[in-house]
Design a protein around this nucleic acid. Structure first.
Lengths: 231, 231
DNA sequence: CGTACCTTTGACTCATATCAACGTTAGTGG
DNA sequence: CCACTAACGTTGATATGAGTCAAAGGTACG
């Protein structure tokens, strides 16, 4: 199936936005749209010659497993994000859909060719890569905090920002894209600790739980104050 | 001072290695060599219009400070590594020399111009950026481990690999580039815990301390086994 | 020789992991 | 539509490992 770039919701924000109409059409012919259901895997660690992809709708997680089989979430990917280790012969990490998702998938060879032909695309990916690097380092900062409340508050605020349409204001009421277990894996905590701290946040009037995954930030200021780090 | 690329120890491994002699000479004219003493700062968070640089010799750390003034080490930079947030108007993190270091520093505008003129350089930086991303995620994996011994063992092995000339074998005897406090900051632990675990490693015959900063891996296999994660 | 910094070690406390039981939600098939 | 089941979430009791506070070696440097 050919990609319908004209209707693409991330046509202005994804890496391919730097291309002209024509160039974009070229690239589109090399790719295909893929739909993933929640929980389905896009790449697995060890995959040879794996592809790469731009996320159009939904959300992905990048994970690794240690020897004991413990999963660790290394990054969340939001729409317009790019996944795929371009210069690595084998995939190092798993990429799994957190919610039903739509992607533009490209064979690595096709993407490498496109990078050779369109320097602007390379620059766009470099920009995105630096952003990912920054995000990884922010997560590093977060997981370095000594107490669980600080870490969880930081994660909630980060998810609120990601769930918001506007980049400056965090969403005030949204659905958590992660289960308790997944939040625990991101923060280096246990499910129980996450659950307890979450209950305490509610008891203290910082947030309100709305159904299964819904959450409302009742007092974002105090939540942010807890984090103790920029934004 | 003009850069002496001909004698540069990282001439084949740094990003500029993809340039031709001539192009490299061009770029060299735009940059300058800088020498930092241990503890000196290259960039500070908040710097406007900060530069970027390739590390030639020595070692750097990338750090951030939270509101309480707690330092957090986000990355180590080894020779041939590149630092500088290209697309960010302000620097987000501090970059400090861990040991006496030599660098090639470029004004951001000059680097951006070079990227425009030399697509291969952009690709090289993208490759390096992906590597940095991978390193950040490995550190994330490490700091996610529940127990201090696992984290410390992983860090020691990582430093052994970095200290080795050969990329496959870890060095067996080397100087730790980090103080106890700095290791603690990287791993999200306290100085005391790092010191205690280190003493226990020695008592258990895993490592031997050699003078102030020196360390010898007596039983790398058991140390690696502790880590429980790939290599 | 003395000072300042880094490291080690000890005693104690406390937050979080662990183990375990119980509720809740969602998805399935009758 | 309901009952059943499995995954997810909450809550409690307990133990342990890491943080904290404190003091005493080491080491480097002037």
């Amino acid at each position: 199936m050919t990609l319908a770039c004209a209707q693409c919701p991330v046509r202005d924000s994804a890496a391919c936005a730097v291309l002209t109409e024509e160039e974009r059409a070229d690239l589109a012919r090399a790719g295909r749209t893929v739909t993933l259901k929640k929980g389905e895997t896009l790449f697995s660690a060890g995959d040879e010659d794996h592809a790469c992809a731009t996320l159009v709708t939904g959300a992905l997680k990048v994970t690794s497993y240690d020897r004991e089989g413990e999963e660790r979430i290394l990054a969340l990917i939001h729409p317009a994000g790019f996944v795929g280790e371009l210069f690595q012969p084998f995939a190092q990490h798993d990429v799994v859909a957190l919610t039903d998702s739509q992607l533009c998938v490209f064979a690595r060879s096709a993407m490498e060719e496109a990078l050779d032909n369109h320097p602007a695309l390379t620059t766009a990916l470099l920009r995105r890569s630096q952003k990912d690097l920054h995000a990884a380092r922010e997560l590093l900062e977060l997981t370095g905090k000594q107490d669980a409340a600080t870490r969880l508050a930081g994660l909630i605020m980060a998810m609120a920002r990601a769930a918001s349409d506007s980049p400056c204001h965090p969403a005030q009421k949204f659905d958590l894209p992660l289960s308790r277990g997944e939040m625990a894996q991101m923060l280096g905590l246990t499910i129980e600790t996450v659950s307890r701290r979450m209950s305490k946040f509610e008891k203290d009037g910082l947030v309100a739980k709305k159904g299964a995954r819904g959450i409302e930030l009742v007092d974002p200021a105090r939540l942010t104050a807890l984090v103790g780090v920029g934004l």
